[in-house]
């Protein structure tokens, strides 16, 4: 359950942002958790629910975006879409591809007071 540690990281990041941008409450928080990242979004939501109590994030609506995976296939010399490590290239069936994006873990934006 490393999602608990990630939830605590998100809270720390938001509190740091609150000092910079002078806000006191977060209404909504938007995250990007790539489909090839090592994070389970449901576990992350659960982790957030327990770490936000009594904090600036309490009551905030959390929206988790799931960017898909894009990769570069060496054999096709082209960009392809993948959804898991070990996937075959949808074009040539090979597995000589390098992930370009889809493993990100980011705080995108927030609506604050």
């Amino acid at each position: 359950m490393h999602e608990m540690a990630l939830a605590a990281s998100i809270l720390g990041l938001v509190e740091d942002q609150a000092r910079r941008d002078h806000f006191e409450r977060v209404r909504a928080l938007r995250l990007a958790i790539g489909v090839l990242s090592h994070v389970d979004p449901r576990a992350l939501e659960f982790g957030l629910q327990s770490v936000v109590r009594g904090t600036i994030l309490e009551g905030a609506k959390v929206v988790i975006e799931r960017p898909g995976g894009t990769a570069y296939c060496m054999d096709c010399s082209d960009t392809i879409e993948v959804s898991a490590h070990g996937d075959a290239c949808p074009r040539c069936g090979g597995n000589k591809w390098m992930l370009v994006s889809g493993d990100e873990l980011r705080v995108l934006d927030m609506e604050v007071d």
């Binding site: 990630l6 990281s9 998100i10 720390g12 990041l13 942002q17 941008d21 002078h22 806000f23 006191e24 409450r25 209404r27 909504a28 995250l31 990100e104 873990l105 980011r106 705080v107 995108l108 934006d109 927030m110 609506e111 604050v112 007071d113």
Partner: peptide, 28 residues
Amino acid sequence: SHHHDEHPTEDGMREGRLITVERDILEK
């Protein structure tokens, strides 16, 4: 320095201020 630029929407509910963050959760 805090901002009070929120405004009411048509249904009377005000919106908060939108802040672009774009930071890696694992940055620390």
